[in-house]
Amino acid sequence: DHWHVHIDGERIRLDGASEEFIRTLEELIRRGTDARELKEIIKEYLR
């Protein structure tokens, strides 16, 4: 599956992301997590 998110107007691909990770991201977004912080979390995950 190819997922991607838009954060700060930037399109970030989440290739190979699990549904669990996507749900976690959605939860963080709902909580109002800062965009820079979200991008860091995604970069760490994709390593």
Rank of each mutant, 00 (worst) to 15 (best):
I7K: 00
D15P: 14
H6A: 10
A17W: 05
K39R: 13
L28V: 05
D1T: 08
G16W: 09
S18I: 06
E26W: 06
D34T: 14
A17V: 14
I22K: 15
R30V: 10
A17D: 03
R13T: 15
G16R: 10
E40V: 08
G32Q: 05
Y45K: 10
L46I: 12
L38W: 01
I41F: 14
H4V: 09
T24H: 15
E26D: 10
E19P: 14
I42M: 03
D1Y: 05
E40L: 11
E37P: 02
G16L: 08
L28E: 05
I7W: 01
I41C: 04
L28S: 04
L25C: 02
D8H: 04
I7Y: 01
V5S: 02
D1G: 14
V5H: 02
E44T: 03
G9L: 02
R31T: 12
L28C: 05
I22S: 02
I7A: 02
E40R: 12
R11L: 15
Y45C: 04
R11E: 15
L14C: 01
W3E: 08
L46C: 01
E37G: 06
R47T: 14
R30N: 11
L28P: 00
D1K: 09
R11I: 15
R13E: 15
E19M: 14
Y45D: 03
I22N: 02
I7T: 01
D15T: 12
E10Q: 05
R47F: 09
E27M: 07
D8T: 04
W3K: 15
E20N: 10
G9M: 03
E10T: 07
L25T: 01
F21H: 01
R11F: 15
S18W: 04
H6E: 14
R11C: 08
T33V: 14
T24W: 11
E40M: 10
R13N: 15
I42Y: 03
E19F: 07
K43S: 11
G9H: 06
W3N: 13
G32A: 04
E20R: 06
H6M: 14
L46T: 06
K43T: 12
G9P: 01
A35C: 06
G16H: 10
H4G: 04
L46E: 10
A17T: 06
I22T: 06
Y45A: 13
A35P: 15
R47N: 14
I29F: 05
V5L: 06
T33F: 04
E26Q: 11
E10L: 06
E44V: 03
H6V: 13
A35D: 06
K39I: 09
E10I: 06
T33N: 04
I42A: 01
L14K: 01
E10N: 05
E44K: 07
R36T: 14
I12R: 01
R31M: 14
L38M: 05
R30Y: 07
D8N: 11
G9S: 05
K39H: 13
E40Q: 12
D1V: 05
H2W: 09
E10R: 05
R31E: 11
E10W: 02
A35M: 09
F21T: 03
R11A: 05
L46M: 13
E44C: 10
D8L: 04
R23L: 10
T24E: 12
D34Q: 10
R23C: 05
R30Q: 09
L14M: 06
L38F: 02
H6D: 14
H6G: 04
D1H: 11
V5W: 02
K39W: 11
H4S: 04
I42D: 00
R47E: 15
E19Y: 07
E40K: 11
I22Y: 08
S18N: 13
D34L: 08
H4L: 06
E26Y: 06
E20C: 03
E37I: 15
Y45M: 11
E44Q: 10
I7R: 00
G16E: 07
S18Y: 04
E37C: 06
I42N: 00
H6Y: 04
E40H: 11
L14P: 01
K39D: 04
V5A: 09
R11W: 15
